[in-house]
Amino acid sequence: MSWTLDTPAGDSLRVNAWNWRPTLELLERHGLLDPDTAALLGHNIETDVTGEQARRIAAFLDAYLAGVPDTGRVLLDGSVTTEPDTFELHRDDLGRNYSATSSWLARFRDFCHAATAGFTVS
């Protein structure tokens, strides 16, 4: 499953569920998304993020990523690890399958910086 983030200017960014779900959890946990918006963004339906929200997300990620190692991953529970992903499917604890890499979060931050008019997630 994947999502596409599109700006009105025509810029696009694609993300898979493994990176997107912990990203949404991180943004909700830090008050950048309300629970209803985070839930909508987690489904494959068109949901808009305003320019103001995109700016707040970008500013948050600027500060947040300063504390995440380049090889770091943010897990679904919000913890950060530098342990490499083995890509093993953890059937006993599905939450262990999800992690937002620091490189993904940096691309998302840059996308949010450029998305001055907001973006649509679908």
Rank of each mutant, 00 (worst) to 15 (best):
L27A: 03
T23G: 07
A100W: 05
T50R: 03
T37K: 13
I57W: 07
D77N: 15
R29P: 02
R55Q: 15
S79H: 08
G95F: 04
V49G: 01
V80L: 02
L61Q: 01
G51C: 09
R55I: 07
D48E: 15
G51H: 05
T101H: 11
G78D: 04
V80M: 00
L89G: 04
E83S: 11
N44R: 15
T71G: 11
L41W: 07
G72P: 01
L105N: 05
T71Y: 00
G42W: 08
T71S: 13
F87T: 10
A59K: 14
A39I: 00
W104P: 01
F87D: 13
E83D: 11
D85E: 11
H43G: 06
L41G: 00
H90F: 10
Y64C: 01
G51L: 06
T101W: 03
D70F: 02
D92R: 06
G42Q: 11
E25I: 06
P35V: 05
P84F: 02
L26Q: 06
F60K: 05
H43F: 12
E52I: 14
N97M: 04
L105W: 03
L40S: 13
L26I: 04
T81P: 00
P35M: 04
V74R: 02
A58D: 09
D36N: 11
A38E: 06
V74Y: 00
L65H: 07
H30N: 15
R56Q: 14
G95H: 02
A38P: 04
H30E: 12
E46N: 11
T37V: 08
N44Q: 15
E88Y: 11
A38C: 07
T23V: 08
L41V: 08
R96D: 12
A58R: 05
G72I: 00
I57P: 01
D62V: 08
G95K: 03
V68E: 05
Y64R: 05
D34Y: 03
D36L: 14
R55C: 11
W104L: 15
A54L: 11
L75N: 14
L32H: 13
V80Y: 01
R55A: 15
S102E: 12
E46W: 04
I45G: 07
D36V: 15
A39S: 10
A38W: 08
G31F: 02
S99L: 05
L40G: 14
L94S: 04
L33C: 08
A66M: 12
L26C: 09
R56P: 02
L33A: 04
F87A: 14
T101G: 15
L32R: 09
T71H: 07
T47D: 00
Q53L: 11
L65S: 11
R91P: 02
L40H: 12
E83H: 09
G95D: 10
E28R: 07
D92C: 02
D77V: 10
L40T: 10
E52Q: 15
E46S: 15
L41E: 05
D92K: 09
E46Y: 03
T23C: 12
D70R: 10
G72M: 03
P35C: 03
T82A: 10
S102Q: 15
H90S: 02
G78R: 00
D85T: 09
D92M: 06
D77H: 08
D92Q: 13
